[in-house]
Design a binder for these strands. Structure first.
Lengths: 100, 100
DNA sequence: TTGATAGGCAACCAGAAGGTTGCTCATACT
DNA sequence: AGTATGAGCAACCTTCTGGTTGCCTATCAA
């Protein structure tokens, strides 16, 4: 649910952008991450909890991949706010002009 | 800097969307927020630290308003990741087809 | 079947985050 | 002048978070 909270950690953002290049296993993601495998696992769980990522076992490793839809939902939320702001600025401008 | 972290709190998200309807003072934002004025202030500071919001004193009250640019930067970041993902899926599809 | 590789579970820890309260300061109103 | 309103500062507390370590399970390969 709290998708922005999930995005709000640098390690998790990095994980996401690495996953954006294609599915990867946990050890794959751990390599060069600077933290432990367990740390990575925790982050992946958070991302999964936010619906940003999904895993599937393949043999002895579990492959993680991006769930694009949630990203786009998040993007749209931000879009919505900026649009509202544009409108409110529009109204403000109108208001100012009426003052003349 | 950590713009997503700033977005990752429900109170702050609500503050933002209220500000999207136009500038407001701290007490204005506090009303109906469910937390103390000091709490609101802290959240506003976080948002400001992320460059998402800006304040200006007007008489005895300080008016807070949205900083649209950062929102759009954040939106673009998400966009970038989904685009990369699209590409990677494209490559994956190609790879699968080669297998036949 | 033994070993190596990939991962899960649980406990633990330090520090950050969210929130409150109490006090002070400054501006506005009458 | 005196009071009410809007806000800042600092201390404090509790909970959540990021990260680690130690140990156990499962799969693959020799």
């Amino acid at each position: 649910m709290p998708v922005f909270a999930a995005l709000g950690d640098e390690h998790r953002l990095r994980l996401l952008s690495r996953l954006a290049a294609g599915p990867l296993s946990i050890s794959g993601l751990t390599a060069g991450s600077g933290i432990t495998r367990q740390g990575v696992t925790k982050h992946l769980r958070v991302l999964a909890g936010a619906g940003l990522v999904r895993s599937s076992r393949r043999g002895k490793e579990s492959l993680w991949q991006l769930e694009k839809r949630r990203l786009e939902e998040a993007r749209r939320s931000l879009d919505l706010i900026s649009r509202q702001w544009d409108e409110s600025l529009g109204k403000l401008k109108l208001f100012v002009e009426e003052q003349d």
